[in-house]
Write a protein that binds this DNA or RNA. Structure first.
Lengths: 237, 237
DNA sequence: TAGTGGTCTAGACCACATG
DNA sequence: ATGTGGTCTAGACCACTAG
């Protein structure tokens, strides 16, 4: 793969790393344009292009006459930056879902998840590698599309991607709902927190091109272990 | 208000008008960079800057070797490619913010909200008409842009819209962070729930085109009174 | 092959913020 | 008064697309 990057992008990435790693903290000054020109041996235009990228990403703020400073607090490790459709699937890949049980969905399951139909339920924990469990996850899959449990266990990607590969179905949109809830006794115990503790409940409904809900997932993230972060960019008008 | 616009922005606006008016339809070719340079008597850099703005707005698409064309018209409302920007402002209009107090931001305020600088704090409740309070809201506004409290009281739209109207500043993007938290005693009492109750904490940072954070808002929605819902549509590809 | 957009250089003048 | 970022010029070479 030819991954040659333009100079301005390389420099933007270097600076981004300094910010992400905490070497440059919020409020800290970045090199001025002229300093960048000398240190990196580039023209001012190239330096500005790099800084422009970081500005658009919301990482730095620039003020004429004053200078350039870091604006974004370094995202805590548990923060999940999400800005678009693809990154939801990305999260599903990064944080491994470890299924524990599977069974047909009961009426209570369907009501809680807000769907109707013939679904299979997978329950389990979601964790990043080697960490404490991030969340309890429940996934409902349309029975006719559901993968067997043993396949899910060795799944590399997400279940929705497996469905797309195995059945040719295509996820067209995702409706995501987020709210705060109090954890019940059982859930709290599995996550190692007190009953009644706050959690972020994220419900996602995946619909295919025909509008059929092929998958619903519910995640319960206990307070402090996870934050959902997204960047919204203004549209044309 | 400062009416002087840089040359590249004037030209971007001229082209934008051609597209908005339908003179240039989707698929139509725009002038090449060199043509723009000659017709407008500008350097190539300035022409590119104008075209870049339109590219970022998603109005045009550029292909090396091929040229520049007008992209497809704005997608229907239900198919916004991204959990969209406008809907945040919409919420800010629907649920009225009732400010109670204002004061300069303390160091603790700034730390909690993740910003640095000279900000004014507004605290108050947010409620839909006639209902129980939906949330406790805290808003930090850059002092030089802050509206007086009596203006906020009779504000029709959101504070961010007031700023845009009064100062000509333009919100370019919003970073939104959501997590679950336990309510402290004071907050819980104001919302009429028990201390330690779960709440959805939503932190939003509004940045202008220079990356300057002009407004930060924090909302605490007690469990059960509010859910945040967004629809993400898969991109072409 | 001719023309496009992508990258980059080396200058310049300006408005603005800070000391 | 100095230095910052914002704007702009006038070049250059390149990778890519299309006729």
């Amino acid at each position: 793969m030819n991954t040659i990057q333009p100079r301005y992008r390389q420099i933007a990435d270097e600076l981004r790393l300094l910010i992400a790693s905490g070497t440059l903290k919020p409020g800290d000054a970045l090199p001025t344009e002229m300093e960048l020109c000398e240190v990196k041996d580039i023209s001012r235009h190239t330096a500005r292009e790099a800084l422009r990228i970081l500005t658009e990403d919301g990482l730095i703020a620039r003020r004429r006459g004053a200078g350039t400073v870091v604006t974004a607090p370094p995202a805590p490790a548990f923060a999940q930056p999400i800005g678009d459709f693809e990154s939801i699937l990305q999260y599903a890949r990064d944080a491994v879902f470890i299924p524990e049980r599977t069974r047909p969905a009961s009426a209570a399951d369907l009501k809680r998840m807000g769907v109707e139909g013939d679904y299979i339920v997978y329950t389990g924990l979601r964790r990043a590698t080697g960490e404490a469990p991030l969340a309890i996850t429940t996934i409902l899959v349309l029975r006719q599309l559901a993968p067997p449990l043993e396949e899910v266990n060795q799944l590399q990607g997400s279940i929705s991607e497996w469905i797309e590969g195995a059945h040719g179905a295509s996820v067209s949109n995702v409706i995501q709902r987020m709210e705060a809830v109090a954890l019940g006794k059982g859930d709290a115990a599995r996550l190692g927190v007190a009953a009644g503790s706050p959690a972020l409940r994220t419900l996602r409904r995946y619909a295919d091109t025909a509008g059929r809900t092929i998958l619903v997932s519910e995640s319960l993230h206990p307070a402090g272990r996870f934050a959902y972060e997204m960047k919204l960019t203004r549209q044309r008008k």
